[in-house]
Amino acid sequence: MKIAVLVKQVPDTATQMKVAGTAKAIETAGITWIVSPYDEYAVEEALRIREKRGQVEVVVMSLGPDRVKEALRSCLAMGADRAVHVNDPALAEADTLMAARALAAVIKQEAPDLVLTGRQAIDDDMGAVPAQVAEILGWPCAYWIMEEAIADDGKTVRIGRQVEGGLEIFDVPMPAVLSAQKGLNEPRYPTLKGIMGAKKKEIKDVKASDLGLAAEAPQLPVVALEALPPRPPGRIIPGDVATAVKELVRSLREEAKAI
């Protein structure tokens, strides 16, 4: 069995984001890059499937510039077997659909039995790529999965997807695309052995032309990137608790009209 895991490298959650001079991109200086946390759940789940079933190859795939190799290497250090890096300046401004087409093309070449990824990358927060990859491949897809169990025959996977007010349990025929929600598992730390072993594992570089991708422009170009407008200054309500609480309720009712 082969499992593909789609990961994206994103700025660490503690990063203060700034807009670059072009007003269309972020200022990347000083950013600590990490594997998007939801994608880590996907990597972890793939490794658990391998531990449970044996004879499973875990291939991580990512799209982006050279620095993405670090993210792939940290997935290899966690235990993934090898990686594919779609690294092509032609895809530098890719929107979700272009990214999905590129990743779907890699997946087609690798022909895995299952694709796992995070519910969204915590940079553009679009959460569209898993569904779009599935659509392009014509595969079923399940979003925000909280649990997963592949049938013994390896033909279907039983998943629980999170919806408003509950969990829907489905049997999904494989190959399929699953997007991981927080709570699916607790990702492991890479061990030192894993880190030392990662450099011996393959990271294959591919270009858009290797994937037979036609040149295209994004369907959803970013026109501008802006900082959030600053919030008007607030106020600390003074006085003892009883006084402050009364004043808060009055303010919410009369000034803010929030209740």
């Binding site: 929107d95 979700t96 659909l97 999905a100 927060d125 679009m126 959460g127 569209a128 790529v129 898993p130 569904a131 779009q132 599935a134 659509e135 392009i136 897809c141 979003y143 925000w144 997807r161 999170q162 919806v163 408003e164 994004p218 369907q219 959803l220």
Partner: peptide, 23 residues
């Protein structure tokens, strides 16, 4: 933005080959 629209709209956008602005 709901659990199913999130997936549905993304998939529809891919099928139609158009852009989706989520959220």
């Amino acid at each position: 933005v709901t659990s199913r629209q999130r997936e549905f709209m993304a998939r529809l956008a891919a099928r139609l080959g158009v852009g989706l602005a989520g959220d």
